[in-house]
Design a protein around this nucleic acid. Structure first.
Lengths: 200, 200
DNA sequence: ATGCTCGTTTCTCTATAGTGAAATTCGTAG
DNA sequence: CTACGAATTTCACTATAGAGAAACGAGCAT
């Protein structure tokens, strides 16, 4: 875990063509410390890690996030998951499942006067973007209703319950792009970290 | 900066109804340390911060990410930036600018046989998603061309040069959703410089 | 009040993060 | 092969993170 962070930092440094001392100066961290961190031999405090991130021009969150590996994924129209829900509405998932990325892109068509129901609150930091292609969509964020017409777009923080409904007399088609943060709920506690035997 | 992290941790702990000792046990961290961290009196190393994040059931990246403040942003169709480029193609930016979120959602229409040109490589970790609404789109990732027809969607890592072109005889309309990572190039220390994002 | 429990803070002490400079490796030129 | 400059690693030392337990303080019952 430490070495992974180290190689990640080193990779970013090499990408920018920086030497240890250059980055050390830019990040206001000693060269030796930087070297140790890159090789996973020392665990930096968040303050120095934040300085390193700043020196690299990335956010601290970016540094600790797992790196991306997949390169190109194409989903043909025929391969896309189209779900015809009982209520007469149709959803098409446009985005592929990419490990480490919590992005979903969905095209939905609702028949006239149809309520797609409410969705639960996602973890803090989740966002959703909506664009209406045709028709009228009533978006309800927590308890606040917003009416969107053709061409309107909206953004909202998705950490509250939210619902979609077609309030018009014709069908309504809209796109939803969602960045969902994952939040694990109180796992039975991993015991793989039985630290405490190294203290004398 | 440290106190901000502290109150954030404390808030998450209170949300879960945990006491210092409960979280300390769940996170395998001493109570005193946890207390100090919550009040910003000590700077934890990433290993203990990772354990704390684990105990809270959130990812390390979630912990260090700035909290979201904006709640709902609506952009009416009339307010959206529609740019008619010289080449005869039209771009509409659907996503609003949200601080801290590097997400852009754009609808583009290209006239027949039009090349929208190539875009530079973004920072590692950047992604793009594409959906073709109508027509035929030739996507070029690095040197790999991919042809997308109506309804096809694609994902690719945007840290290489990439281009869009309409190779068909009719107009082509497509959506691009982009998560762009920011990367600064070796500035002379501190001072958070701007972050200019733009996307075609 | 007195005693009890729960939650938090403070205390002591050891392990280690972090610095600055010397030592080492590694190209590359002479 | 030797010399030299740049990049990285090792070394000695100081500051502090982190564990463990004691001390503090707020309810709450008797």
């Amino acid at each position: 875990m430490l070495v992974a962070l180290g190689v990640r930092i080193q990779g970013l440094r090499h990408d920018r063509g920086l030497t240890l001392q250059q980055l050390a100066e830019a990040a206001d961290v000693s060269v030796g410390m930087l070297s140790s961190v890159e090789r996973g031999q020392k665990a930096p405090t968040i303050v120095v890690l934040a300085r390193i991130a700043d020196g690299l021009g990335v956010s601290l969150a970016d540094l600790v996030a797992e790196p991306e590996d997949t390169r190109i994924i194409v989903r043909r129209a025929a391969d896309q998951d189209s779900v015809d829900e009982p209520g007469g509405w149709r959803r098409t998932v446009l985005s592929p499942v990419v490990p480490g990325v919590n992005f979903e892109w969905i095209r939905t068509t609702l028949p006239p006067d149809c309520d797609a129901g409410r969705f639960p609150a996602y973890a803090p930091g989740s966002h959703e973007y909506v664009v209406v292609e045709s028709g009228t969509l009533r978006l309800t964020i927590a308890d606040t209703p917003v009416d969107l017409n053709e061409g309107d777009s909206a953004y909202f923080a998705a950490d509250v319950t939210h619902g979609y409904a077609n309030t018009g007399s014709g069908p309504c088609t809209y796109y939803v792009a969602a960045l969902i943060m994952r939040a694990r709920v109180a796992q039975p506690r991993t015991r793989h970290t039985s630290r405490g035997l190294r203290r004398g």
